[in-house]
Amino acid sequence: SGGGSGGERTVRCRWVIDATGRAAAIAVRCGARRRVRDRLTALYVPLEADPLDTDRRSLVESDEDGWWYTAPQPSGGRLVAYFTDTDLPAATHTARHFHRRMSATRHVSRWVHRDGPPPTSPTAPRRAAAHTAHLDRVYGDGWTAAGDAAVAFDPLSSQGVLTALYTGLSAGLAVDAHLSGVPDGADSPLAAYADHVAAARSAYLRGHRVIHAQEARWSDRSFWARRVADVP
């Protein structure tokens, strides 16, 4: 419910698509359970436009406790993000700690500090959830989850936008078929949608293990060991 001027109003509908992101607010309220696989978090800083920064590529660089990502933004600035686990010291949420670690990188630091040394008053990073998670069920009586609400992937997979589009389209088609009178059951459109989401998650997990196992320099560090512990 919602409304203008601080008021509320009730909207009635036959079905709700939960597209509330990792919170899965509607699904959880309807009794679904959120299964969180890891503690990945993103610490990120948007940088102002630099006339010397003409490289439009994105870059990923690993370190002993996680991985860095930087990419140009449509505004002309650049985003720099560090991904690590919330329980590790590397996740310290201060400007000094973030920029010190960034300056220690081999590649990201050269892209960010093209025009000279780091700023004397660095910006503190913001934080965003980046963990892998899924719902124990992606539909119920009157609702269906899509996008990150249904299944959320590690950004390293580069599957976020694709999965959001795929599950959004698939959920819409499944709900439309259900409301059009297709009977429930093991072969129902909603059950088929749930199977497709589960298959996408299984494929992601296999790739997730393989990709992280390729970084062998810090296999004894907690961040990397956690992600390859179940690799055959």
Rank of each mutant, 00 (worst) to 15 (best):
H107G: 05
V108Y: 01
S109A: 15
S109F: 02
R110H: 14
R110E: 14
V112G: 04
V112P: 03
V112D: 03
V112F: 11
V112R: 03
H113S: 07
H113F: 15
R114P: 03
D115P: 01
D115H: 13
G116W: 10
G116E: 11
G116D: 12
P117S: 00
P118G: 07
P118K: 07
P119M: 12
T120Q: 03
T120E: 10
P122V: 15
P122M: 15
P125F: 06
R127D: 10
R127M: 15
A128T: 13
T132A: 13
T132V: 15
A133V: 13
H134S: 14
L135H: 07
R137L: 06
R137E: 04
V138I: 14
V138P: 03
V138Q: 02
V138L: 09
Y139C: 12
Y139Q: 07
Y139H: 15
G140P: 12
D141H: 14
G142L: 13
G142M: 10
W143S: 04
W143G: 03
T144H: 09
T144S: 15
A145H: 05
A145I: 12
A146N: 05
G147H: 01
G147M: 03
D148L: 03
A149G: 12
A152W: 02
A152K: 02
F153L: 14
D154T: 13
P155F: 13
P155S: 13
L156M: 14
Q159D: 07
Q159G: 05
G160N: 07
G160F: 09
V161T: 10
V161K: 02
L162M: 12
L162R: 13
T163G: 02
A164Y: 05
G168K: 05
L169V: 13
S170Y: 02
A171M: 04
A171H: 00
L173T: 09
A174W: 02
A174Y: 03
V175P: 01
H178S: 12
L179T: 06
S180H: 08
S180V: 00
G181N: 00
V182E: 07
V182W: 01
V182L: 01
P183T: 08
P183C: 00
P183Q: 02
D184R: 00
A186C: 00
A186I: 01
A186Y: 00
A186T: 09
D187M: 04
D187A: 11
S188E: 06
S188C: 08
S188F: 01
P189S: 05
L190W: 13
A191C: 06
A191H: 04
A192I: 09
A192H: 05
Y193P: 11
Y193T: 09
Y193R: 04
A194Q: 14
D195T: 04
H196V: 10
H196D: 15
H196G: 14
V197W: 03
V197A: 03
V197R: 03
V197C: 10
V197N: 00
A198W: 07
A199V: 06
A199E: 14
A200S: 14
A200F: 08
A203K: 09
A203I: 01
A203V: 05
A203F: 00
L205K: 01
H208F: 14
V210D: 06
H212G: 04
H212Q: 07
H212N: 15
A213V: 04
E215R: 11
E215P: 01
D220G: 09
D220E: 15
